[in-house]
């Protein structure tokens, strides 16, 4: 349908406003990270660096702690993503393929756990970890984050498995495959794209977490990226240019992964409700 020019001006004008609104903070973060220590404290601030320097990145990256934070975040997020997808495959298959008593109630319970605020759990969990000797370990943090991402992984994986026809399971059964074999050899390969999306979501949720790391980790050598960066603010001789360089590094991975995955984005968080 043809629209008059004035409407197109309005549409592209609105898109341009959205463009500016969305990108200004990113622009400011990136620009500031390339400023010198002298320019970063200037008033009024310059919009572009007068003297372009990567000194802030070098200083951040060479700081011993920072590489550790990066590594810890990777370990925690990767393990969380892997564990919650693995356990999620089993539960997703169970919910998708079996009609047992209490199935609906269990599924509701799984979904409802996503509504529980982290602050309710983190205190008692801290106590449990202390008793179990897992306080201040990455393993304790991974367990906590897995249970946070698990319910949503289960729902997502179940949703993807529902799209695979039951006839495939029946054919596999006729061929004498056990349920486990059917799941891993027939169903999992068919839902692989969805599974990858689920895994990456869990990774991202874990990557962005602060609350759990803050409450479960005290050893500076075991801090994650988000925790480590927040602790830099206000420290003696840490400049905003350096903090902005750190935030750029911390944002690159999620931004890249989200953009690669954007067509799965909605499915992930609304799987339960979107389906017709």
């Amino acid at each position: 349908m043809r629209k008059p020019t004035s409407i197109w001006v309005f549409i592209y004008g609105a898109l341009a406003v959205m463009f500016l609104y969305n990108l200004t903070p990113f622009f400011w973060m990136v620009v500031s990270s390339f400023k010198t220590e002298i320019e970063i404290v200037n008033y009024p601030a310059t919009f572009l660096p007068e003297e372009f320097t990567t000194a802030a990145y070098e200083k951040m990256w060479l700081q011993e702690g920072f590489i550790l934070y990066f590594k810890n975040s990777l370990i925690v997020s990767l393990s969380t993503a892997f564990l919650s997808s693995l356990v999620g495959i089993f539960a997703g298959y169970g919910f998708s393929r079996f009609r047992f008593k209490g199935r609906l109630a269990l599924m509701t319970a799984f979904l409802a756990t996503q509504m529980i605020p982290g602050v309710l759990l983190v205190g008692p969990y801290f106590k449990m970890m202390t008793i179990a000797g897992l306080y201040d370990t990455l393993f304790g943090l991974i367990l906590a984050q897995t249970s946070i991402t698990l319910p949503f992984s289960v729902w997502m994986i179940k949703g993807y498995m529902d799209t695979v026809p039951m006839e495939i399971d029946q054919a596999a059964e006729v061929d004498g495959a056990s349920r486990l074999q059917t799941m891993f050899l027939c169903i999992v390969p068919l839902v692989l794209p969805g599974l990858v999306a689920t895994t990456i979501f869990a990774f991202l949720l874990s990557w962005g977490d602060l609350l759990w790391a803050l409450c479960l980790i005290s050893n500076p050598l075991k801090q994650t990226m988000t925790l480590g960066i927040t602790q830099l603010v206000g420290q003696f001789r840490v400049y905003w240019s350096e903090i902005m360089a750190a935030t750029v590094i911390a944002s690159i991975i999620p931004a890249t992964l989200y953009l690669v995955l954007q067509r799965y984005l909605v499915q992930g968080f609304t799987e339960a409700a979107v389906k017709e």
Partner: peptide, 28 residues
């Protein structure tokens, strides 16, 4: 892509960036 970008920023990181944007002297 641009429309989704803000959401890709972890909220902790977003808080830091906005804190510096609103900084009294060198903020944008």
């Amino acid at each position: 892509v641009v429309a989704i970008l803000p959401w890709t920023m972890p909220d902790v990181i977003g808080g830091l960036v906005w804190r510096f944007m609103f900084d009294t002297l060198p903020g944008i």
